[in-house]
């Protein structure tokens, strides 16, 4: 069956069986292999992409349910020589080692910072109302769906904190 959607700003039409996940479609049909498969069961976050502004596990999403969706993958966030602020920050803080969980971490963090900017609370937020300040604890909590076996967690949090601070300052203006 055919699914029409936008991937990294480009309109795409993909012909695939109904059982094909968004993750496998990205990797096998489109050749966008930046999005990784770590578990195929929604347990690791390696496959995180941004759909209509929200982060999702693309392994738990069937392609055919994404008709008309706007999908952004790690490739759409930046490229060598033109990296996004978060990608730069991951590089500077060594927020990765093997790099396999990294696209998922970066997509997840990109959307997470926007969630916080909108004031969405998390499990560790003091209150359900008002501003969501991205403390270390908040970042760790909100990023816990993205596993990293190389365990770059402290560095990932540093990288996100740096970018989030700038984003919050921007939002305050």
């Amino acid at each position: 069956m055919k699914t029409t959607l936008t991937i990294n700003g480009e309109p795409r039409e993909i012909e695939a069986e109904a059982r094909v996940t968004l993750l496998d479609a990205l990797r096998h049909e489109i050749g966008l292999t930046g999005t990784k498969k770590g578990c195929d069961h929604g347990q690791c976050g390696a496959c995180t992409v941004i759909v209509d502004g929200r982060r999702i596990n693309s392994c738990l999403t069937l392609l055919c349910t994404q008709e008309g969706a706007e999908v952004v993958t790690v490739e759409g966030l930046g490229e060598p020589g033109r990296l996004s602020a978060l990608q730069e920050a991951f590089l500077a803080q060594d927020g990765f080692q093997c790099g396999y969980c990294t696209p998922g971490q970066i997509c997840s963090a990109t959307a997470m910072i926007e969630e916080a900017a909108k004031g969405w609370p998390s499990w560790v937020s003091e209150s359900l109302e008002g501003e969501a300040v991205l403390s270390r604890e908040e970042i760790s909590e909100r990023m816990s769906g993205n596993l990293c076996r190389c365990a770059c967690y402290p560095n990932i949090v540093d990288a996100i904190a740096k970018v989030a601070e700038a984003r919050m300052a921007e939002a305050a203006e």
Partner: peptide, 28 residues
């Protein structure tokens, strides 16, 4: 910083299961 870092943070580093799609597109 890691010399291969830009490839990794931008999803351009090619891992084993991706060689068919990326390195070797004509045979994909």
């Amino acid at each position: 910083d890691r010399s291969e870092g830009a490839l990794k943070v931008s999803g351009r580093a090619v891992y084993a299961a991706e060689q068919a799609t990326s390195l070797w597109s004509e045979k994909r």
